[in-house]
């Protein structure tokens, strides 16, 4: 039975051909490390995603600001941190944050301008910057009439002020004409 014995001997490793042992070792290594890094990747994603909550308990960025008749023509009123401006041609909403360094500014009725107490930036009624260090006009938000006839401000829809541009001309859609 010499031939039988010969078949039991391990075949000599040929160049470029894997032995069975090598093949299994490599396969298990690839499977094992693949499994390990897949799990690590999944947990990496879980840990990262965990920091982005799905439900927020903060004031809604879309809110009602009362009926249009509460705003006389030419008036400027602050609601929920934004300025509601009522002109003869319609309503628009200005963000209450100075475009210089983020201070909250005031409306000075006698001079018909917004004035920032921090560094003296001044803005006209339409939000155009005209004095002080502010680099660009005030940002605007979308305003529309809600189903109940109340004005609704949508802070998720923003019209950023662009230096040297008048927002009335740049964003006609920011004005609610009623």
């Amino acid at each position: 039975m010499a031939t039988h014995r010969a078949t039991l001997e391990r075949p000599a490793a040929k160049a470029g051909v894997k032995t069975r042992r090598q093949f299994l070792t490599d396969t298990f290594a690839i499977l094992g490390w693949g499994f390990f890094w897949t799990i690590m990747g999944i947990f990496g994603w879980i840990f990262a995603r965990f920091f982005f909550p799905n439900v927020l308990f903060e004031p809604s960025p879309i809110f009602e600001v009362g009926y249009p008749q509460e705003y006389p023509i030419g008036s400027v009123q602050k609601r929920n941190g934004v300025w509601i401006v009522r002109e003869a041609y319609g309503f628009f909403v200005l963000d209450g944050t100075c475009t210089h360094l983020g201070c909250k500014f005031n409306w000075i009725d006698a001079e018909q301008k917004f004035k920032c107490p921090c560094h003296g930036s001044g803005f006209r009624k339409d939000g155009t910057n005209f004095e002080g260090p502010a680099p660009r006009p005030l940002d605007r938000y979308k305003i529309y009439l809600g189903e109940g006839g109340k004005l609704v401000v949508d802070k998720t829809s923003k019209f950023p002020g662009v230096p040297g541009k008048n927002s009335n001309e740049l964003y006609p859609e920011s004005i609610l004409r009623i």
Binding site: F51, P53, L56, F57, E58, P59, P61
Partner: peptide, 8 residues
């Protein structure tokens, strides 16, 4: 943990 400096 939100869009403003709040509870979160």
């Amino acid at each position: 943990g939100g869009s403003i400096v709040g509870e979160n």
